[in-house]
């Protein structure tokens, strides 16, 4: 039923196809790229070549193939997006479920904190907390220093769980009101049984939706940080979408349009596709839609 509705969402199907194509290109990356990430195009002079047969999407300042670098960069960005989305959703589920079930003081405090974080300018909070975490010795020992991928994933997860926890908390509160939970309680079911049998199946839709939006959030979070020079430095010329978009800033005034356009395009296409998919998932799993149609 839900799947049928999702399939009926044409835009989401097209987006899934585009995204699938991109993911495939990234997964098969040594096969799909034409040059190494740090390799120059073999045609001197090779810097700032405009798009041609030689370099499909042109080259950058030191003659590296933009097309190949985009695929490597997308790989890093998707990795960051997926990892931190999963961690965020996991933390969010746990905190939201506990807050919803426990209620009381714990619930109040958690919700106050999420409110505060959601209201605070994201970039400011991200940068300040980034530096604070980076200064804590034992923490950087575990999650790596500020320029590592692990650190960025941790940082983005730290900010990512709040939206999810709100959703899960809402689900728990709604479920608590419903009779079948009461019935399960009355028949002596344990809390973990209730969570497993009733809460999870009912929340899986909203959680999936939250997951897709978390991926977008993390990818654009990384891109924002990188854009201002506070992102990961994957080392050895490796790159990310954010770093590539960051180079676009300088390219604008000089008129090397491809350096600005293509990384931006890839980033926008990815977030647009995931957003559309998330929206279609929301429509497809919304129980209200069953009653409506």
């Amino acid at each position: 039923m839900a799947w049928k509705r999702f399939a009926g969402h044409k835009a989401a199907l097209v987006c899934s196809a585009i995204l699938g194509f991109l993911v495939l290109a990234v997964v098969l990356s040594p096969l799909t790229t034409r040059y190494g990430v740090n390799e120059s195009v073999k045609a001197p002079p090779n810097s700032y070549l405009s798009p041609s047969k030689l370099a499909w999407l042109g080259t950058d300042d030191i003659g590296r193939d933009l097309y190949s670098r985009l695929i490597y960069g997308t790989r890093v960005s998707l990795l960051i997006g997926l990892f931190s989305a999963f961690i965020s959703v996991f933390i969010g589920c746990v905190v939201g479920a506990v807050a919803g079930f426990r209620g009381g003081r714990f619930d109040d405090v958690i919700m106050r904190i999420t409110d505060l974080f959601l209201a605070f300018p994201f970039l400011v909070a991200l940068l300040v907390v980034r530096n604070m975490f980076g200064s804590i010795g034992w923490l950087t020992f575990i999650i790596g220093d500020v320029s590592s991928l692990r650190f960025i994933i941790f940082l983005l997860s730290f900010f990512g769980w709040m939206g999810v926890s709100r959703i899960v908390r809402g689900q728990v509160l709604a479920l608590k009101e419903r009779e079948f939970i009461e019935a399960a309680r009355a028949s002596g079911a344990s809390r973990s049984y209730i969570i497993k049998r009733h809460l999870l199946p009912n929340s899986i839709g909203p959680i999936m939706v939250a997951l897709t939006f978390s991926v977008v959030g993390a990818i654009s979070g990384e891109a924002t940080l990188s854009f201002f020079g506070y992102g990961p430095q994957p080392g050895a010329g490796a790159t990310s979408l954010g770093l590539l978009v960051g180079q676009a800033k300088g390219a604008v005034q000089t008129g090397y349009w491809w350096i600005a356009l293509f990384p931006c395009l890839v980033l926008v296409v990815i977030s647009l596709c995931i957003n559309f998919i998330g929206d279609a998932l929301r429509d497809a799993t919304d129980p209200r839609m069953d009653a409506g149609k």
């Binding site: 924002t224 978009v245 800033k249 604008v252 008129g255 349009w257 980033l267 926008v268």
Partner: peptide, 25 residues
């Protein structure tokens, strides 16, 4: 709806860059 989605999906730094490219260059 589609336009709103595109709007949400374009981060401000990208729309800035594209507008700069268009108007400055």
């Amino acid at each position: 709806n589609t336009a709103a989605f595109v709007g949400i999906s374009i981060p401000p730094y990208i729309s800035s860059i594209l507008l700069q490219l268009l108007f400055a260059v």
